[in-house]
Amino acid sequence: MNYHWNWKIFWDLTPEGSGTYLHTLLVGLLWTLATALAAWVIALVLGVIVGVIRTTPRKWAGRFCNGYVELFRNIPLLVQMFLWFFVIPELLPKHLGDAIKQMPPPWASYVPAVLCLGFFTSARVAEQVRAGIQALPRGQRMAGTALGLTLPQTYRHVILPMTFRIILPPLTSEFLNIIKNSSVALTIGVVELTAAARAMQEFSFQVFEAFTGATILYILTNILVIYGMRWVERRVAIPGFIGPAVQAGGH
């Protein structure tokens, strides 16, 4: 191949003089994780609320939540990113919009990125939660009612504990997705892992080394998450139940 490899580049100093290229990539990885984790909290909270409401008997609330899921599922993530970053501050009252835009960096791009990923993923989590609840035998809900539990109590003590165990595997893949999707935040200026690799490529001209470095870090992160989640699955497993593996597509 007509390309000059130089694997030692990772130990060279960057032009910023702040450290080696490897250091740049690792800082990028930290931003990837910081973005993904913060967004994941939003995604879980909103996703569970929306997913649960979709299975309650309240028709109008269910319809509203269906609309919520459709909205965030049917607009490309990149477009949503632009909406949060470019459009929303302009639609808010001027002083509020300016306050958002003038947040000290990197927060001015980090916050919209987290909100965007959080809401985007919450729609997908909501789908999993709904599917998980609907996969439970109807008898469980009836048993809750028969015991004299109110609807919230039935959810809290009967339905949700089972649902979470069932949907752990698809939630794991949603979490992996949010890590990968955080790379889209580079378009609004978050210097996460992919952006760090791109910057390394620009300054060192070693394109393939930079992207190989990032690829390896993504793979390691993936493996860690998968093993971590398997451990969690084993810890919370209820003897006698096998959670059905719900197929999760998407990226």
Binding site: P15, P104, P105, S109, G189, R198, A199
Partner: peptide, 27 residues
């Protein structure tokens, strides 16, 4: 802008003269 000599010069200025700037890079 990402990938320009300008952003490099900016980073160098920031370190060499201790300017305390926050450097952003745009697409």
């Amino acid at each position: 802008t990402a990938g320009t000599t300008d952003i490099k010069a900016l980073n160098e200025l920031n370190t060499s003269k201790n300017m305390g700037m926050t450097v952003l890079s745009a697409n």
